[in-house]
Nucleic acid binder design. Sequence first.
DNA 1: AATAAAATAT
DNA 2: CATATTTTAT
Length: 394
Amino acid sequence: MGSVSPELSLDFRPTFLPRTVTDFLREVSMIGNVSDKVSKLDAFVKGLEEEMKKIDAFKRELPLCMLLLNDAIVALKEELMQCISSKNVQPVLEEFIPLKKSSSEDEDEEIPAVKKEKDSSKDNKKNWMSSVQLWNTDDHQTTDPIVDLKQNTNLKFKRNEEENLFQGCKSRTEARAFMPFKAYPGFVRKEDKEELPAHGLSLVTPGIKNPREDTGSSGSRTSCSKSVSSSAPNARTTGPQPPHQQTTRKQRRCWSPELHRRFVNALQQLGGSQAATPKQIRELMQVDGLTNDEVKSHLQKYRLHTRRVPPTTTAAPANQSVVVLGSLWMSQDQYGDSSKGSSQSGSPQGPLQLGGNTGGTSTTGGDSMEDDEDAKSEGYSWKSHISKPGKDDV
DNA sequence: AATAAAATAT
DNA sequence: CATATTTTAT
């Protein structure tokens, strides 16, 4: 009590502009009083949101601004939520924090014990876009390019990098699934290039292909579980994977949300799905192990899906700003789950901010600003909300 | 059994 | 590189 800096006294209308988000967070983190903390954060967030609304109209011209703002907002909200939840707060706070989400959707990630029935969250699907404006306050994944909250207090987001890429690949019915290591003894054929480590994205780790063995299982089909790298049980070390099956079919590559994100990003940078070419995309994505064909295939599908947007006959009241940042085309099938995708503008390790993000997966942001446009359809299945045909024009 | 997604063939 | 076709996974 007494040691509040003058600035802090401006609870609600702080002139937060002069400072950077990082600084702001640092300041806030030093505040002992939770209420103050919350109000500060809240105020800041509100300011950012206002800003967001203002530039919303120019989102196309200022995609980066949107991204940055969005990122900051998300990050701050995270912080806010943490404050709130960590204290479980008293009544007093409740007055301040009626924020948008009061324990409604997902704020798990950390919640131990209760594995909670995620299944019951069927509504989530709807939520993923509709109720949440665009800065959906997701909990995890707070990798922001600009702010390094990490040093602040967020320890929760940490193991995202790799996981993000793979995440979402598992079967969606995984509820409590943990596939035993049944998978396959894999021999990872590293035939591909292995030189693109770059940031440690080791996405492509296709399982392995194992034709017969699993064909009967009707339950746990782990399509792609990232690493089941067991030292080949088979003593065939040197022996390639020689199932006499010529043309051994590659194991299906699972396009995790992150992977897809990168894909979309690349696309954007290349001027749209139409202009982009597989090779280019692949290069841009910088995902090791990813092959041209894979990208090509994905692109093909993407193009197919982005072609012609179903008339959103939805009489959707377009009142919400609905920016639909994450318009990954995916629905809930494969990529969808993580749903927080959004993209960052540059490649993750690219030129822009991501400079030193160690754990930086690309964060969420809007990636298809160009495409979405009126994609505001709150979409249900992806046919509905896929990103529009890219108007190539970067 | 149907369909989407990825692999492969053209 | 683009498309078409086939295979595979849910």
